[in-house]
Design a protein around this nucleic acid. Sequence first.
DNA 1: CAATAATGTGTGTATTTTACACAATAAATA
DNA 2: TATTTATTGTGTAAAATACACACATTATTG
Lengths: 245, 245
Amino acid sequence: METTNHAISKQTKTLKGLQSEVQSINRVALSVDCVIFGFDENKLKVLLIRSDVKKYQSKWSLLGDLVKPEEDLDAAAYAILKKRTGLKNVYLEQVHTFGDVKRHPAGRVVTVVYCSLINVQNYRLKILDNEIHWHDVKNISDLAFDHKIILDTCYSWLQKRVQKHPLGFSLLPAKFSLRELQSLYEAILDIKLDRRNFRKKFFAMDFLIDSGEEEQNVPHRPGRLYKFDYEKYEKKKKTWSGIDF
Amino acid sequence: METTNHAISKQTKTLKGLQSEVQSINRVALSVDCVIFGFDENKLKVLLIRSDVKKYQSKWSLLGDLVKPEEDLDAAAYAILKKRTGLKNVYLEQVHTFGDVKRHPAGRVVTVVYCSLINVQNYRLKILDNEIHWHDVKNISDLAFDHKIILDTCYSWLQKRVQKHPLGFSLLPAKFSLRELQSLYEAILDIKLDRRNFRKKFFAMDFLIDSGEEEQNVPHRPGRLYKFDYEKYEKKKKTWSGIDF
DNA sequence: CAATAATGTGTGTATTTTACACAATAAATA
DNA sequence: TATTTATTGTGTAAAATACACACATTATTG
């Protein structure tokens, strides 16, 4: 990164010079937005809030906030999650930054977008704000600002990511049945999977720990409950997945 | 995205109100940095410039610039490429945004990082600025600012990306031999590949067009030259690659 | 014309993926 | 308490893919 547009100047810059340069610079407003995914009733959900902007009065929008001057980006995203869901230790990953000049009606606001995956069960305890709701990801037509585009980007990101990384488990309870896991993958990827082959694949990976427990309160034969072994995964995960496109 | 920290206010905001809010906000300096990869002498290279900041006097840094108030992010990245390499129509993709409060010595500068892949042959015509040089990616110890971390992030990104997306061809001439292609993959992934299986795999993909031509001026039997069929790829590319981690 | 360095090609084996069916179990209901 | 319902748990054969591996050919160089 350089600090001027006079690119090829050979003079070096002192810290003081740099500082005044950075201060005199055209700056932009910076926000973070969180696409918070959940999984409930066999459907992929996203957490949205009613827009408080008149122009978008009837529309829903992502959860976001401005980044404070002394706040790291990850911390800003984390703060939103904490504030809106009360949850800590959630899966959070930066996905993309949207900064088109005219994306925000009030002037230039660049937004760094994060995806988060939370367990809806934990969240339910904390529904206190009736302006925030879960929405079916597949049933969203339009949102405030450019948030529909952001959501589409994040959903595509999730569909790819979930195939190569075990982040999907963050959407489930700590102990889950293989049916729940399969139904999660089917919802995210929007495909049907063969049950026997699905099980075989996950057992072969050898990252599932049999909890010894079984499902409770299901109206049919209960399945075994498993936990995902993140530690083992970290040790054994693949680096080479092969050239394939 | 919301525009205040007073989160759950139910009042809607008018455009004017929003505008003054956005203007009165704490803003940050925003830059874009480009990690420009090249491939030469069977090695993966990255284009670096001598830092013009005193603190980092002896160090190299990525090519970057501040984002202008009326400039989209992609356009800003593109402008850097154009200015520094003279090339247009290059592969360019946003990778990550780095915004830690203390990443820049002169105050808060958030930087959106792009990766670009260019053909070193085309670039050679334009070496006019002796402050800019190609460096072996595997031979870089430290860089100005947090640029080493950025480079590491982008190199990891490239290693993954090149396995599932045909961006690697952007590093080669339009017509290339299979040896060049294999050597490219070996350099990026830092592994040896079996020649016969490598060929078989790419021929099976069926995205290579036989140009009918052969290599010139090689000190051995010349190989056939191929082109990559981007159109066909766009039509037939995989969406489902399988759960595997 | 010999040496060098790379091209072009095929097969057998192991591994992975896919398609597919039935008995057992727990809960709910009649 | 017997039946219905929904889902669990399990295996095999066939097909596709990945992997390991060797030799004759061709152009250039000295």
